[in-house]
Design a protein around this nucleic acid. Structure first.
Lengths: 255, 255
DNA sequence: CGGCGCGGTCGTACGGCGTACGGCCGCGTT
DNA sequence: AACGCGGCCGTACGCCGTACGACCGCGCCG
């Protein structure tokens, strides 16, 4: 397997894992391991050192068991990552909704951003197929609930949520890349650019890319770094919400 | 190395590769290989079979040379992927801009979507650090040029482009996941859901997730599949453009 | 004209990954 | 007392990226 993508083939097994359908062992003192224990240490490893550090050997080691013992509880790494994702979504707060729809949606966006900042590996975990776990469904239900009543059709409500969450994920990914770069190189973002700029200038013909140079420089100075992920998140979020309010207003006028 | 991420350390080497700074060999009839030939077959492999199929052995094989010969021209796989990315961005059309800013931005969004559909591996190629190649810079310059004059600050213009391109990438990724799923399972998206639904229902308590069920069903019926990537792209794009036009109008009113 | 250096080529090998397979062991049941 | 089975896991296989050093033929210098 490359990346964290797999065929898995067996929906029953994968879904049962996500929903933890498993009769408790009748044996006294039960087994040493469990899906929950495995998932917990796996998330800890991924949080602390990234997805690349999450190997099956490493998980076994952290649990004090052999590598292959993990496979007693989890069919493979792809499924483990799927459970990790569902579990992580389960940690999100779901306070009673209040305020107008814009406030609610903004809150949802910020909560999602915070989740991705706590678990940056989620941004790199490719799954191909949807993770149909209970927590993800609960999250989807909750978030839809915050905007079902804004006067759009169900299909539009779904698209609104997809749009907002997509923006959050994009912005989180950009922010995460900056953090990764700093961790990998030991330089801050600004230092990295300073170390590359002289080399870049030797290749650049003066006057080439005039607009890119001007805008890039302006953005760099403004943010104190070449890229301002927080600014991009905030600016984008407000634009997206503005755009949504245009349709909401249209629909309200039609009524 | 896991994923396609690497430290690389040496900016000079990486940048020189991107910009193809290399005196042509004085030898008669030159070497059999070149960076360009390598990049071309690498892109072909990734286009046809995905990033997971792109291995250094495979590239050598496709070129009729030994695996390690590739390393004469490219320091490692991460750098190869970086050059592939820059090259792919180089294929994009850059017609003279005309029409109003909204038309231009919409055009840019569609061109980017088309690129990602032609080269879906670009959506999975994680780079951590920006690919500072000539084509990517030209693209950035071109796209900024289409919107510099809409009355926003340079910093805002940059954020607008980031927002739009981020949306395109999100939507393209969602669409690509559907395609991958179909390729991996041999089922259409609809068939996949039909095969999972019965299992899912055995876990679901009736009445749980009422909103998610209703909206999910509505969306599924509307799109003829559980997820309508094209609809999500279109809806989101219009919302984003609406949101941008709100700021543009504000600025115009201030003037 | 002979030797040398060097750039291009690449076979071998190493360490790491996910995981298939089969054996072992101790418990609950019969 | 015997059995079966669930949990555990050592070993091994086939992949991956790539370090290392050998080989080889060309162009240059003496």
């Amino acid at each position: 397997m490359a990346s964290e993508r797999k065929a898995t083939a067996d929906p029953a097994r994968s879904l049962a894992l996500l929903w933890r359908t498993r009769e408790p062992t009748s044996r006294s003192a039960g087994p040493a391991l469990s899906v929950d224990r495995i998932v917990r240490v796996a998330i800890d490893i991924a949080d602390a050192e990234g997805l690349d550090a999450l190997t099956m050997r490493r998980v076994g080691e952290a649990l004090g068991v052999g590598t292959m013992s993990v496979y007693t509880y989890v069919p493979g790494k792809a499924e483990l990552v799927a459970v990790m994702i569902d579990t992580a979504y389960g940690e999100m707060p779901r306070p009673a909704v209040d305020g107008d729809w814009r406030t609610r949606l903004e809150r949802i966006a910020r909560d999602n951003l915070a989740l991705y900042q706590r678990h940056p590996w989620m941004l790199r975990a490719e799954t191909t197929r949807p993770v149909l776990g209970p927590h993800l469904m609960a999250k989807y239900d909750y978030e839809l609930g915050a905007i079902v009543d804004i006067g759009l059709t169900d299909v539009e409500v779904d698209a609104v949520l997809t749009l907002v969450l997509g923006h959050v994920k994009s912005a989180a990914r950009a922010a995460s890349e900056v953090v990764d770069l700093e961790r990998e190189t030991g330089m801050t973002d600004g230092q990295w650019w300073q170390s590359h700029a002289p080399w870049l200038e030797t290749f650049l013909k003066p006057g080439a890319y005039p607009i890119a140079s001007r805008v890039g420089t302006a953005a760099g100075e403004q943010h104190g770094a070449a890229y301002g992920p927080e600014y991009a998140f905030e600016f984008g979020l407000q634009r997206v919400l503005d755009g949504i309010s245009v349709v909401v207003a249209e629909r309200a006028a039609d009524r």
